[in-house]
Write a protein that binds this DNA or RNA. Structure first.
Lengths: 161, 161
DNA sequence: AAATACTTGACCATTTTACTGGGTTTATTT
DNA sequence: AAATAAACCCAGTAAAATGGTCAAGTATTT
């Protein structure tokens, strides 16, 4: 499990999509404008998200993207893994001749950590992120009330329309 | 909190150091050989780890590096943060004029996740990683007994001497 | 003094990231 | 039917990060 800006872009875009696609598909152009991510980069990311079966593309005017599952059925780990190239982090490439090499031991220790993080992110759904749990937590960190955060989202929706 | 190969290298090297520096300082050359990391790259990493106060350099013949704290007093999060350039992941650079921008809202949602991961890694010490907890967990995943894993470490120590 | 070992800085190749720009298909709207 | 709006596709590419090299130091111990 790697955590890079790429994964953050993907999660950000999915959050935006989950929030705005309640009624109708959302165009990548809209997401690009709201989140200040380049359109073509979003296309790359969504090509992977689509192949991973997390979003559905609707062509033609009035089209865009929608979640192919409910927001609570999509977890953060799978979003990140969908866009992240699976890097072979072993030196030996997983060859079985590597049983007694110390690099592979420490590598395994690291992988153990990585797995812990993955399973943690697997427990968190897009829906949860949007709902009170983390929103209110963030709001608290910012010394705001969660109503205000929600208002902010609604405000932006109108502004970008 | 980013999780990249750089952080993995640092944790790997610190694990090696913690294990081999029980009695005397360990040279970066030794770590480089055992872990197949380039010496110069290790030098870069350890320069940061030293500035972060996690290791001490001992100059002169017989010198090398030692932990400046006990292995149980060093957590994984601080190792990673020591070598990771703190990337400003906000678009607005944390300016206060950004209160109502949605990029900052989703950014904050992401940061909330990131904080969770950080605090998780903060709970895990180098010492724990070396001891039974995670070693046996890894050994279990590999279908081995932990004795065998420990043996592997000892084996390498002799081999590289 | 000599050997060892850390320090520092400049440099560089490769890979990944993030983006640009050109298409093509599909579906809607007029 | 024509225009249009959108996904979808693909080749290229600039910028950044990664991982590494080289060289000239400085400090310490023997």
């Amino acid at each position: 499990m790697r955590l890079t800006t790429k994964g953050r872009y993907a999660v950000t875009a999915m959050l935006d999509l989950a929030f705005h696609s309640q009624t109708k598909p959302v165009t990548l152009t809209d997401i690009a404008n709201r989140q200040t991510i380049s359109l073509s980069y979003l296309e790359q990311l969504f090509a992977r998200l689509r192949k991973a079966g997390m979003v559905k593309g609707v062509r033609g005017p009035g089209g865009g993207y929608t979640l192919s599952r409910e927001a609570h059925q999509i977890n953060i780990a799978e979003i990140i893994e969908a866009v992240d190239e699976p890097v072979d982090s072993t030196k030996c490439g997983g060859k079985s001749n590597c049983h007694n090499d110390q690099p592979c031991l420490t590598h395994d220790l690291w992988m153990g950590l990585s797995d812990q993080i993955r399973s943690y992110l697997k427990q968190i759904s897009l829906g949860q992120l949007l709902e009170r749990d983390l929103v209110s937590e963030v709001a608290h960190r910012q010394g705001q009330h969660s109503e205000r955060v929600i208002d902010t989202l609604a405000l932006k929706e109108r502004k970008s329309a």
